[in-house]
């Protein structure tokens, strides 16, 4: 059975339809990469799953149970955690406090400050630093570590590499590999870097104008097919819906 199932989900920003009729499932330990241009609805989709954005229609179920209008903090306690776009750390609090506050309010489990520091070794000397003073890569590591502290079964990662230096991106992804290696955390990640997405993911879904237009095993998809879907080139309407 799939751990997370999204059926015919739609979400709006005012009159703007950001997500329309999206369906996908993710099994335990699966790594799903969401790709697509800016404004394709990826961030809204993740926020809706996490409970930060209200769904306008459709269903999200976790272990077969409908999440309905459950609030975000309850979803965290079930095991759904989002690393939001822009990282959104508590900038006035230290790295340690950011980790602790999540640890105190999420699920219990394998992830503690010690295990997070093992996976994200760069954070060790930074524990007492205020997050507002950290570099982008350090902040992203803290943000992922903070989400892990809630011991999620589904980890939603939005724009992991946005605004980071290539070195920082590599460090963050190396650490993510140690999370993936545990094998029991489902990850849905939004990534602009196609080749990186293809390397890390088991499956890829491409979004265009609020819909999933291409989905498949990462191994089966070529860069070209994804690029076409990314820009909506294979479709007769020229990418516009009537």
């Amino acid at each position: 059975m799939s751990l997370l199932a999204v059926e015919n989900l739609s979400a709006r920003h005012g009159l703007l339809q950001a997500v329309s009729g999206v369906s996908f499932t993710a099994a335990e330990g699966e790594i799903l990469a969401l790709v697509g241009a800016n404004g394709a609805g990826k961030t809204t989709l993740l926020r809706t799953i996490a409970g930060s954005h209200r769904a306008a229609g459709g269903r999200i179920s976790f272990e077969g149970a409908d999440l309905g209008t459950m609030r975000a903090h309850r979803r965290v306690q079930l095991g759904i955690a989002l690393v939001p776009e822009g990282r959104r750390l508590f900038g006035a609090m230290t790295v340690e406090e950011n980790l602790k506050v999540a640890g105190a309010n999420g699920r219990r489990g394998r992830w503690t400050i010690e295990t997070v520091l093992d996976a994200f070794a760069l954070l060790k000397p930074l524990l007492r630093r205020r997050c507002g003073e950290l570099s982008g890569g350090q902040q992203q590591a803290t943000a992922i570590g903070r989400a892990l502290m809630t011991n999620p079964r589904v980890l939603l990662l939005d724009e992991v590499s946005l605004g980071l230096s290539p070195v920082a991106v590599r460090t963050v992804y190396d650490s993510l590999q140690t999370v993936i290696a545990q094998g029991d955390t489902t990850i849905v990640l939004v990534e602009q870097d196609l080749s990186r997405a293809l390397r890390i993911a088991t499956r890829v879904a491409c979004m265009l104008e609020g819909r999933i237009v291409l989905e498949g095993k990462a191994a089966d998809l070529t860069r070209e097919r994804i690029t076409e879907a990314y820009f909506g080139l294979r479709r007769g309407e020229g990418g516009m819906r009537a």
Binding site: R88, F90, V101
Partner: peptide, 15 residues
């Protein structure tokens, strides 16, 4: 303090 700074994100860490 987390809620004072950013209530929406506070919800995302289970608060």
């Amino acid at each position: 303090r987390a809620c004072a700074e950013d209530p929406e994100t506070a919800e995302l860490v289970g608060i």
